[in-house]
Simulated scan of single mutants.
Amino acid sequence: MPAVGGAVGLALMAAVPTALAGTALADTGSGAAREVTYQAQLRPLNHQTGSGRLTLRLRGSTATITERYSGLAARFGGKPYPHLQHIHGGARGMCPPMSADKNGDGVVSTAEGMPFYGPIQTTLSVTGDVTPRGGTNLAIAPKGPSLRYERTITLSPAAVASLHKGIAVVVVHGDDPRLLGRKARTEKSELVPSLPLAVTSPALCGVLKAMPAGGAATGTGSTAATGRAAAIGPAAGAWLFGAGAVLAGTCALARVLLVRRRDRAACRPA
Rank of each mutant, 00 (worst) to 15 (best):
160 V>P: 12
179 L>M: 09
172 V>S: 03
146 S>G: 10
190 E>L: 07
156 S>D: 12
154 T>C: 03
119 P>A: 09
177 P>N: 03
122 T>N: 13
154 T>H: 12
120 I>W: 05
146 S>V: 03
184 A>W: 08
132 P>F: 06
114 M>I: 11
108 V>S: 05
155 L>R: 05
100 A>M: 05
132 P>A: 11
136 T>R: 11
183 K>M: 14
125 S>M: 02
173 H>S: 06
155 L>K: 01
152 T>S: 14
145 P>H: 09
173 H>R: 04
154 T>R: 07
149 Y>R: 04
121 Q>H: 06
104 G>V: 08
137 N>C: 07
111 A>N: 11
184 A>D: 13
134 G>M: 00
127 T>K: 13
170 V>C: 07
136 T>V: 13
129 D>Q: 01
115 P>R: 05
162 S>P: 09
98 M>F: 10
177 P>Q: 05
106 G>N: 09
93 G>N: 03
107 V>Y: 06
184 A>H: 08
167 I>G: 05
134 G>P: 00
161 A>K: 09
169 V>Y: 03
163 L>A: 06
93 G>S: 01
172 V>G: 01
118 G>C: 02
183 K>N: 15
122 T>M: 02
108 V>Q: 05
170 V>R: 06
186 T>E: 15
156 S>V: 09
191 L>R: 00
139 A>V: 14
173 H>A: 09
188 K>Q: 14
152 T>F: 04
122 T>F: 03
108 V>I: 01
117 Y>L: 03
103 N>C: 00
166 G>P: 01
98 M>T: 13
140 I>Y: 10
143 K>N: 15
106 G>S: 09
176 D>P: 00
170 V>W: 03
138 L>Y: 13
164 H>N: 14
115 P>Y: 08
144 G>M: 06
146 S>Y: 11
160 V>S: 11
101 D>M: 04
148 R>V: 12
189 S>E: 01
141 A>Y: 07
149 Y>I: 06
178 R>G: 15
155 L>F: 07
138 L>H: 12
102 K>T: 15
140 I>G: 11
159 A>V: 02
119 P>I: 06
130 V>D: 12
95 C>A: 04
182 R>F: 13
161 A>V: 04
95 C>N: 02
136 T>H: 11
179 L>P: 05
166 G>A: 04
192 V>T: 11
146 S>T: 13
